[in-house]
Write a protein that binds this DNA or RNA. Structure first.
Lengths: 102, 102
DNA sequence: TGACATTATGTCATATCTGACATAATATTA
DNA sequence: TAATATTATGTCAGATATGACATAATGTCA
């Protein structure tokens, strides 16, 4: 959320916080979750750019459609390892991963 | 792999790959391992920069000295998740992680 | 609308990762 | 050298992640 929107909401009486504050996460934990979310979103973006279904991607990485869905939904049972391995399978380079993380 | 087995797998919906694809997977795995190694080396670098022992770092991240040693040695039983969480605990930023990966 | 494709969610047994511990190996310092 | 500190390696039970499956939910198109 950008600062402008936050200010608008504050003015309307909303207490605007970060997801971290709401969930009671430490700064590190928040960074970890956000970083993972970035990977999740990028995985979906990359999959769609290749016009693949979740099922097709699942077969490519020897996983299942449900797990791909959870990856893209940033499910807490998904590890960064799995996200990275999946992105690499989709042809992502190290610098591409780096860009996604930064 | 013989054709019979390939046909069986195809029937089950598996995409059976060529040797080239197999090598491609190896390349991905290599990238994964190298990427993890970069994180491992950077963890050690960052720990030493703070003049911490493995035991001290272990306490910081609520782990054990042996696991820290394995992280720095790029032991295969270590996940990227653990490496990233450890680096974040040492104060690394997202861009710092990105730079390490790239 | 219905039929079909795609994605989302819950659950399970199994595999992998985890912290912890013991102890070996290697530094470091007196 | 010995004593101590630090790091490396092996192992374990418990925790977490995994692929698979069923099925619900949502989207798409005739």
């Amino acid at each position: 959320m950008n600062k402008k929107k936050m200010a608008t909401l504050e003015q309307r009486g909303w207490k605007v916080g970060t997801a971290a504050e709401f969930l009671g996460l430490s700064a590190e934990e928040a960074t970890y979750v956000e970083l993972k979310l970035s990977l999740a979103l990028y995985l979906q973006k990359k999959r769609k750019a290749k016009h693949m279904t979740q099922d097709q991607l699942a077969r490519l990485i020897h996983s299942s459609q449900s797990r791909v869905a959870k990856m893209e939904k940033n499910d807490p049972t998904i590890s960064i390892d799995l996200l990275m391995k999946s992105l690499l399978a989709l042809g992502a380079s190290r610098s591409e991963l780096a860009r996604t993380i930064s």
